[in-house]
Simulated scan of single mutants.
Amino acid sequence: MANFERNSFESDKRDDGIHAKDFVIGAVTGAIIGSLAALLFTPKSGREFRQDLNDQAFTLRDKTDHIRSQAVLKGNELSSTVKDKTSTISRKVSEQSVDLVKKVKNLKPADGDVENPIDELFQQDSQSEIQRKLDETKKAFDETESKLGH
């Protein structure tokens, strides 16, 4: 159920973005068509009509330049915000990973056993090796003693 709600929310979010985009395109297109219709159906001389058409073209160009500059400004602000957030998140993850590594290194077993099972195997091997050498030394010592006749 939660997955369905999440997918529904995500699709609504995408739809809102598409609707807003379509609305802006429609508004600009409607404004251009409305301006041209008003110019065409208004009784004016050729010279006045051309002057009005030029004025409208310059006005449209100025508005387009203003919208473009606003879009670039917002894009730069968004980019800066994303970079700041990314660096903040990266720094926090790094700090937490360092803390986690420190905690893991400081963990000690509660029952006093060897920390690493592999180390325990090596310790057992070394202890049995030491015991074997002690036994060999004792045996050699006993043999030497028996040869000397004690």
Rank of each mutant, 00 (worst) to 15 (best):
V82K: 05
V82N: 05
V82L: 06
V82S: 03
V82E: 03
V82M: 07
V82D: 08
V82I: 11
D84H: 09
D84T: 03
D84L: 02
D84M: 06
K85D: 11
K85R: 14
K85Q: 09
T86F: 10
T86D: 12
T86G: 02
S87D: 08
S87Q: 12
S87N: 12
S87L: 05
S87F: 05
T88R: 08
T88I: 02
T88G: 13
T88W: 05
T88Y: 13
I89W: 15
I89Y: 13
I89R: 12
I89D: 13
R91C: 02
R91H: 09
R91W: 09
K92F: 06
V93Y: 08
V93Q: 12
S94A: 14
S94F: 03
S94L: 11
E95M: 06
E95V: 01
Q96R: 11
Q96D: 12
Q96G: 01
Q96W: 07
S97T: 06
S97R: 04
S97N: 08
S97C: 04
S97E: 11
V98N: 12
V98W: 04
V98P: 00
V98H: 10
V98S: 06
D99F: 03
D99P: 01
D99N: 12
D99A: 09
L100V: 00
L100G: 01
V101S: 10
V101M: 11
V101E: 14
V101Q: 15
K102R: 07
K102S: 12
K102N: 15
K103H: 05
K103R: 15
K103D: 14
V104Y: 12
V104M: 13
K105P: 00
K105E: 14
K105M: 05
N106G: 04
N106K: 14
N106R: 13
L107V: 04
L107Q: 09
L107E: 10
K108N: 11
K108F: 12
K108V: 12
K108R: 11
K108M: 13
P109C: 01
P109M: 01
P109L: 01
P109Q: 02
A110Y: 12
A110V: 06
A110P: 02
A110T: 11
A110W: 09
D111T: 08
D111F: 02
D111H: 02
D111G: 10
D111W: 04
G112T: 03
G112D: 05
G112N: 10
